[in-house]
């Protein structure tokens, strides 16, 4: 009988370093710099002195109870709040790559091309899948068919939808399932090659499998894009994001790496919210 001790053993020369799944606490290279931001709708202030920095090529999640201002903040980043009468920044600034996006000389149209958005309720246009994705390109002035074909395929691949729709590109976008529609909206946003993608509760209307596919997609996308996601689903924030900001009543209560927020938050209110003690 051969003893276990006699068997040849090969020890690895060098043990691999332990995998550190927590994002570093050191200041990440920020691409968005929000500084002491106050935001008001009409007479009603909704954001108070918000300061945070969003890291490039990482996923940042905003969590908080309803009405805490997280959707307002994310819509400030691509100035979609401009569509609402009386909504304006009353103090502070938002800088993207060093440029103040609320300065009067900024071209909002260009900003929105570089900061894309995916909405809570998926809103594919009542056009074919192909035309949905080509829309952003065409309004930017790109009309060459070959270029558009290329971009459509590229975006659909990036959104993990290509294999499912490649032989029915001229079918209406409404013929897809809910999860596929949302991925179509993501592909549409990616087609114009933004740097930053904002997602406002992208999975709240989807079933668990569709949600999982989108979370997987987010994980892949963050290698190339900076992603900011607003979510009500704490587990999703915990799974998907590298950094998390907790908002309450218009203020940023805590902003840190996701691992820290969900294992050992510094603020009492953060802990109470994430453990389901209020909100």
């Amino acid at each position: 009988m051969v003893s276990l001790l006699d068997m040849p053993r090969t020890l690895p020369q060098q043990l691999p370093p332990p995998v550190d799944r927590s994002a570093p606490e050191i200041e990440p290279a920020p691409i968005i710099d929000v500084s002491e931001l106050d935001f008001t709708y009409g007479n009603h202030q909704v954001l108070f002195d918000v300061t945070l920095r969003i890291a490039a090529r990482a996923v940042t999640a905003f969590i908080g109870p309803s009405g805490c201002g997280k959707t307002t903040l994310i819509r400030c980043l691509n100035r979609m709040n401009d569509l609402i009468d009386g909504a304006r920044v009353t103090a502070g600034s938002i800088r993207i790559e060093g440029v103040d996006i609320n300065a009067p000389e900024i071209d909002v149209v260009d900003l929105r091309r570089r900061v894309g958005m995916v909405f809570q309720k998926s809103n594919p246009f009542p056009k074919s899948i192909y035309d949905n994705i080509a829309y952003g390109l065409r309004i930017a002035g790109i009309t060459r068919r070959s270029r558009i074909d290329e971009a459509v395929e590229k975006s659909l691949r990036a959104a993990a939808l290509w294999d499912e729709v490649k032989d029915r590109l001229h079918v209406s976008g409404y013929g897809l399932s809910g999860g596929q529609q949302q991925r179509l909206c993501i592909a549409r946003a990616l087609a114009v090659e933004p740097d930053i993608v904002l997602m406002d509760e992208p999975c709240s209307a989807l079933d668990p499998i569709a949600t999982a596919k989108i979370e997987e997609l987010i994980y892949e996308l963050k290698q190339r894009y900076t992603i900011v996601i607003v979510t009500h689903n704490m587990q999703q924030a915990g799974r998907c994001s590298d950094y998390t900001g907790f908002f309450y009543l218009g203020r940023l209560i805590e902003f840190a790496s996701t691992n820290k927020i969900f294992t050992n938050p510094s603020e009492r209110r953060t802990e109470d919210y994430i453990t389901g003690r209020f909100g």
Binding site: N78, M80, L83, V109, D110, R112, R113, R114, G116, M117, F119, K121, N123, F125, P126, Y135, G136, I139, A140, C185, R188, A189, V192
Partner: peptide, 10 residues
Amino acid sequence: GLREGSLALG
């Protein structure tokens, strides 16, 4: 949603 989606694309 159609308007917002379009504006958000630039």
